[in-house]
């Protein structure tokens, strides 16, 4: 595979990641979300592997495998398990004003592009143009967390945001040092356990995973 081709494939992956991000933003069904998230992880993993191939830095393969294991298999499985346990896999979340959210999402993408434009000029890497996508993914993840009211969807948004980070790390820079990537992966794993515990705690205390209920602690009176 030539470098050029790899770059093209990588760009396609980037586009797919962005697409899944938008999908996550508007997907109402829990399972659908989960699947989309797993897909995003998969694209990320492929992209990482390609970058690893292009740059010749072999630790990216490890990253790629880690991503695959964590984001495509383990965490979706944990989430799936939790949803079953908590009987929420069939729930459908209410979303307000999807078009507006989409418009904001698009605006964010444009904004990300605008921001990363000067950086792109500097970069010599073939994957340079993906930085905008990575930033957009991060922003869209944040947007998703803002617009969703369900604890699980918030977490998925959070994980999508992390995907964006990961994508930035691999595509913009050909990967962070391995120790960092391992550490990050470990942290995400721990985080996954913690939110698992949280889902149970919230469920038992509040009877539902709707985070809108958690507004007791505030300054207004």
């Amino acid at each position: 595979m030539s470098i050029n081709l790899a770059a093209q494939v990588n760009s396609i992956m980037a586009a797919l990641i962005l697409l899944t991000s938008f999908g996550l933003l508007v997907q109402r069904r829990m399972y659908g979300l989960l699947h989309l998230f797993a897909w995003q992880g998969l694209f990320l993993s492929i992209s990482t592997a390609i970058v690893g191939y292009v740059s010749g830095s072999h630790h990216l393969y490890i990253s790629s495998i880690l991503t695959l294991a964590l984001k495509v298999i383990l965490i979706p499985y944990i989430l799936h398990f939790l949803m079953k346990q908590l009987h929420i896999h069939k729930e459908v979340e209410q979303l307000v004003n999807v078009p507006t959210i989409m418009l904001i999402g698009i605006a964010l993408v444009i904004f990300s592009y605008y921001l990363t434009a000067p950086i792109r000029e500097l970069s010599t890497l073939v994957t340079r143009s993906t930085l905008a996508v990575a930033l957009a993914t991060v922003m869209l993840g944040l947007l998703m967390m803002i617009t969703r009211r369900h604890a699980v969807t918030q977490i998925i948004g959070f994980l999508a945001l992390e995907n964006g980070l990961f994508f930035a790390a691999t595509s913009a820079t050909y990967g962070m040092p391995l120790v960092v990537e391992l550490g990050v992966a470990l942290d995400i794993l721990i985080a996954a356990f913690i939110f698992g515990i949280f889902f149970f705690q919230i469920r038992t205390t509040f009877d539902s995973l709707d985070v809108e209920q958690m507004t007791k602690l505030k300054e207004e009176d």
Binding site: L142, I146, T147, T215, K216, K218, E219, E220
Partner: peptide, 14 residues
Amino acid sequence: FGRLQQGYIHVYLI
């Protein structure tokens, strides 16, 4: 200033 903190995590994220 108290209005800043109205308990909704979404608002904080915003």
